[in-house]
Computed example of a mutant assay.
Amino acid sequence: GDFRGALAAASADGDAARRPMALVLSAIYWRNTWKYQARGYRHFFWDSGAMLANLLAAAGALGFEPRVLAGFVDREVNALLGLDPEREAALEIIPLGPLSPPAPPAPPVDPIDYPIVPLSSEAVDYPALREIHSASMLDTPEVVRAWRRAEPLPARSPRAPTIGLPEPRREAGRAFGETVLRRASTRQFSHEALSALELSTALASAAGGIPADFPSQLVSLYLIVNAVEGIEPGSYCYWPGGNGLELLSPGDHRSRSAYLCLDQPLGGDAAAVIYFLAPLDAILTRWGNRGYRIANLEAGYCGGRAYLAAYAQGFGASGLTFYDADVGRFFEPHARGLDAIFVTALGRSARGGAREPAPLRIR
């Protein structure tokens, strides 16, 4: 049957009933909690954000006009897909394709209860994760509409003159399909420098904004620059409006960056490390507990865009875990009031990686 009407009602989005298809990303809890326990919750949104970076780039290139719906009635969408909320949950809805006549009324949604093959012989339950997710659910379409009416965050601006970066490339590196196939997490960085143009392109791509039912640029991009041609080593804040860097503290921060990235050498060996920070208190005030979802989702999406720009240009990237509070303290006082959300390291692989000329549109 045609269930677009049911999906549109649950998401309080009439356009969802007029698109020829929709994708729903979900998270199976155990796939993350086996390693990260209850803290795996934020990985749901980092990972789905990275998937959306690939999906939206491909869908946009095909003219599918993608838009992410993070607001919906969780209970109804989970039931529509037959998801057991004790083990799996819907995260985002992505209607795709050109507008068409509205879908007919949806048929009754019968319960789905197919037998499944378990991921492993046993799984550990982390009740805190399910409690967190339940606390951020939306109960009715009216609540979804009210959630979307939240006021955007006030704009931030530099406190000091910025260092202009080269105009980002609009086309660079490998073709899109090859970029996605080659995309991986770099396991060892050399200390070889990136060019300022390569960094500029990666930052502009990361900060490009996500087409969604919540305002973009909830996260700010802070950096530790270790080896970028023409840019002094130090810590910076990136300002996408003017494509510039605001210097916060000059100096060699390689060892500190490795420490901040959970004592992982990747954080010190990379040419540059992007720290995505967001004002969680302000976000939770505006968007309630679901604000935690969208902050992590946008950070994962921005990190995924940085990945694509890196691999398109012939160098590598790696998403890293980190010491949350210490990251915030490192960038104070400039980042006071912001919380660490995600980290992406950029650099050349110690195993090499030649640049290739086939064009890819990255913006």
Rank of each mutant, 00 (worst) to 15 (best):
A9K: 01
L194A: 05
E246W: 12
L25W: 08
H253P: 01
G347C: 10
L223K: 01
P108G: 06
C302P: 01
L7S: 00
G244F: 02
L247I: 10
A306Q: 09
I163M: 06
L262I: 09
S185P: 13
P115Q: 15
P20M: 05
G60N: 09
L119D: 15
H334I: 04
A272C: 07
D74G: 12
A38F: 06
V68H: 04
G267M: 05
L69K: 03
Y323K: 10
E356P: 00
A27C: 07
S120Y: 15
L56A: 03
E232F: 02
A299H: 04
R4M: 03
L199W: 10
N54S: 11
D252N: 08
L62C: 09
S120E: 11
A309Q: 11
R329Q: 11
H253M: 08
L223H: 01
D110S: 03
L346N: 07
L360H: 11
L69F: 06
G241C: 00
V144L: 01
I132W: 05
D47I: 15
A295Y: 05
G242L: 04
G49N: 13
H253A: 13
A193F: 13
P215S: 02
P161R: 01
D339G: 10
Y259D: 02
Y311D: 07
W30A: 11
I283K: 00
L260E: 09
P154W: 02
F45C: 00
S220N: 03
A27P: 00
D269G: 04
A184F: 03
V143K: 10
M51F: 08
A135D: 11
V225K: 07
M21Q: 03
E192H: 12
A79V: 09
P127N: 11
L83N: 07
A58Q: 06
D324M: 06
A27G: 06
L165P: 02
I274K: 00
R39F: 11
A207F: 00
A70R: 02
G209V: 00
S157P: 02
D139C: 04
L83Y: 02
L62A: 14
A10F: 05
G244N: 07
G304Y: 08
V68E: 08
S257G: 10
R290Q: 05
R145I: 13
R254N: 09
L297D: 06
P161F: 01
D2I: 14
S249I: 02
Q313G: 02
G1V: 15
S136D: 12
L284R: 08
E88S: 10
N54F: 08
H253E: 05
R290D: 07
